[in-house]
C-alpha cells in the first residue's frame, strides 16, 4: 500500500468558497426541472415502483389462482353431483350390482352420522378435560410438553392411526364401526383440545380471581365461571373438528370398509357403511352409474363440510369477540 495523501491538502479544498471561475454547485445540473410539472417518479424510483406493482400483481394473481381452483372443484362437484340428488338418493340403498343404475346412499349417510356422533362423544369431553388441565392445573413445563405431544399427535398421518388400530384391534377379530369412531376421535382430539385451550385462555383472569376472592374452590370456578364463558367457542371448535373428520377416509379403509347394503345402526359387531369409503370404492370401480352416485355423495359431504366450517367460523369469531371485549 502506498502512503495515503496528507488529509488537509485534499479535504480543505471543498471547504473553501468556490472560486469565481468554477461552476456553482447545482442540484439540477444536467437535468431539466419544471417546478410546475406533475410529480411523477422518474429514473430509478420509477423502476422500483414498477417492481413493487408487479410483485403486488403477482400476489393478487396467486390469490386468484387459489380461488379459481376452489371454484373449479366446487363447480365440478356441484355440476356432477346435483343431478344425482333426489328423494330416493337419501332413502334407498345402493343397487345390488355396484355398477348398476339407481339407488341411493342412505346406509352410508346414516353410518357417517353415527360414526361422527360416537367420535364426538369420545373426543369432546376428553378434549375439554385436557384443555382444562393445560390452563388450570398443569405446571408450565408440563403444559408445554403436553402441547408438544398434542401437536405431534395432530401431525401423525391419519392412515397410520388406522393402521395401528387395525393391528391392535381388527386383525384377527374383524372390523366394527366403533373402531372407526375411535380413530376419528383420535384425529379430532388434538384439534378440540388445542382450540378449547385457546378459548379457555381467553376467559379473563379477572373472573377467575373474582371467584378466588369469594373463596370459591377451583372446580366450582371451572364449572360456574370458566366453562360457561368458553363453552360457545369450544363447541364451535368441535364443529370445525367434525367438519375435518367427516371427510377422513384413510383410517376408515382399514377399520370400516367391508360393509353391506343395509342401513346399520349397531356400531359394535360390524363395519358401518360410510360416505368417504363409498366415494373411494366407487372411484376405483370406473362405472358410469357408480361415478354418478359417488359425485352425489361427494356433493352431500362437501355441502355439509362447507356449511359446518363456514358456519363454525362465523360462530367462532362471534364467541371470540364476546370473550375478548
Amino acid at each position: 500500500m502506498t502512503e495515503l495523501p496528507h488529509p488537509p491538502a485534499s479535504s480543505a479544498a471543498p471547504l473553501q468558497p468556490a472560486a469565481d471561475d468554477a461552476p456553482p454547485f447545482d442540484l439540477l445540473a444536467g437535468r431539466s426541472f419544471d417546478p410546475s410539472g406533475p410529480l411523477d417518479p422518474t429514473g430509478h424510483l420509477r423502476g422500483r415502483q414498477r417492481l413493487s406493482r408487479i410483485m403486488q400483481a403477482i400476489q393478487t394473481g396467486s390469490a386468484i389462482v387459489a380461488l379459481a381452483v376452489l371454484a373449479i372443484v366446487i363447480y365440478s362437484v356441484a355440476a356432477h353431483g346435483a343431478g344425482a340428488l333426489s328423494v330416493g338418493f337419501f332413502t334407498q340403498s345402493p343397487p345390488v350390482n355396484p355398477e348398476g343404475a339407481g339407488g341411493g346412499i342412505a346406509p352410508e349417510l346414516v353410518g357417517t352420522v353415527l360414526l361422527m356422533i360416537v367420535a364426538t362423544a369420545i373426543a369432546l369431553p376428553t378434549g375439554i378435560l385436557i384443555a382444562l388441565y393445560l390452563t388450570e392445573f398443569a405446571p408450565p413445563k408440563v403444559a408445554s410438553a403436553l402441547r408438544l405431544i398434542l401437536d405431534l399427535l395432530n401431525g401423525v398421518p391419519t392412515i397410520l392411526i388406522g393402521l395401528v388400530l387395525f393391528g391392535l384391534l381388527v386383525a384377527g377379530h374383524g372390523e366394527t364401526g366403533f373402531y372407526a369412531s375411535l380413530a376419528l376421535a383420535i384425529i379430532m382430539l388434538p384439534l378440540i383440545a388445542r382450540a378449547a385451550q385457546e378459548m379457555l385462555l381467553l376467559v379473563p383472569t379477572g373472573m377467575r380471581e373474582a371467584a378466588d376472592a369469594l373463596g370459591v374452590t377451583r372446580w366450582r370456578t371451572v364449572r360456574g365461571v370458566v366453562l360457561p364463558s368458553a363453552i360457545g367457542g369450544i363447541l364451535t371448535a368441535t364443529i370445525l373438528a367434525v367438519a375435518r373428520a367427516a371427510g377422513e377416509t384413510a383410517p376408515l379403509i382399514l377399520l370400516s370398509d367391508v360393509f353391506g347394503r343395509a342401513v346399520t345402526f349397531g356400531i359394535f359387531g360390524q363395519a358401518l357403511p360410510n360416505i368417504p369409503v363409498y366415494i373411494l370404492e366407487a372411484s376405483e370401480q370406473a362405472s358410469r352409474y357408480g361415478f354418478a352416485r359417488a359425485w352425489g355423495a361427494a356433493f352431500v359431504l362437501l355441502a355439509f363440510i362447507a356449511l359446518a366450517s363456514l358456519g363454525g367460523r362465523v360462530l367462532m369469531a362471534r364467541s371470540r369477540a364476546k370473550l375478548v371485549q
Binding site: 372443484v73 365440478s76 362437484v77 367438519a243 375435518r244 367427516a246 371427510g247 377422513e248 377416509t249 384413510a250 368417504p276 366415494i279 373411494l280 372411484s283 359417488a294 359425485w295 361427494a298 359431504l301 362437501l302 363440510i305 362447507a306 366450517s309
Partner: peptide, 10 residues
C-alpha cells in the same frame, strides 16, 4: 376443508 377423497376423485 375439502375432504381428500373428494379432491382425489376430482
Amino acid at each position: 376443508a375439502i375432504p381428500s377423497v373428494i379432491l382425489g376423485f376430482w
